[in-house]
C-alpha cells in the first residue's frame, strides 16, 4: 500500500516533467541561455513546484510532527554550507550546461530507449557511486 503512494508520486513527477517539457534538453538549454534564444518557460516550472511544495509543507507541518506513515519529518537533513556543497554544485552546473540533462529528466526519458540517454544515466550512476565511496 505504501509502495503505491511512492509509485503514484513518481508518476505525477514524471507527468509534470513531461507537460512542462523539462524532459527536453533543448528547452532546458534555452532556459539557461539568457543572451540568445532565451526561453523563460522553466522559470514557471520552478515557481509552480516551489510554491505548491512550500505551502503544502507549511500547512502540514503546522499541525503534524510526523508524516502519515509515522516518520519524523525532515530527519537527516544537513544545513552545513561547506566546500563539498560548493564544488559539487559547480560540477553539477557544468554537466547540466553541457547536456541540458539533470537526474530527474534523464530518468523520465528512459522509455524512449535513446542510447544517448541510457549511456548518460549509466555514466551518471557510476560517477555517483565512485563519489559516494570516496566521500
Amino acid at each position: 500500500m505504501k509502495l503505491l503512494v511512492y509509485l503514484l508520486a513518481g508518476v505525477i513527477f514524471g507527468i509534470g516533467l513531461t507537460i512542462s517539457q523539462m524532459v527536453d534538453p533543448m528547452k532546458v538549454l534555452n532556459f539557461l541561455s539568457i543572451t540568445e534564444s532565451w526561453d523563460p518557460s522553466l522559470a514557471f516550472v520552478m515557481v509552480g513546484a516551489i510554491g505548491l511544495f512550500s505551502i503544502s509543507r507549511i500547512v502540514f507541518t503546522k499541525n503534524n510532527k510526523v508524516s502519515i506513515f509515522g516518520d519524523v519529518i525532515g530527519q537527516k537533513i544537513s544545513s552545513v554550507i561547506d566546500k563539498k556543497l560548493v564544488v559539487g554544485s559547480i560540477l553539477f552546473g557544468v554537466g547540466w550546461g553541457i547536456t541540458g540533462l539533470c537526474p530527474g529528466p534523464a530518468v523520465a526519458n528512459i522509455s524512449n530507449l535513446d542510447p544517448k540517454i541510457l549511456v548518460f544515466i549509466l555514466v551518471m550512476i557510476i560517477s555517483m557511486r565512485i563519489s559516494h565511496r570516496l566521500k
Binding site: G16, S20, Q21, F53
Partner: peptide, 25 residues
C-alpha cells in the same frame, strides 16, 4: 515560450514532492 504548460507541470512536480513529504517525511 510555454508559461502555462510550465506552471501546470511545475504544480504537478510540487504535488509529487508534497506527497513524499506528507506521507513519508
Amino acid at each position: 515560450f510555454t508559461p502555462v504548460a510550465g506552471l501546470v507541470g511545475g504544480l504537478l512536480i510540487g504535488l509529487s514532492a508534497a506527497m513524499l513529504l506528507i506521507f513519508a517525511g
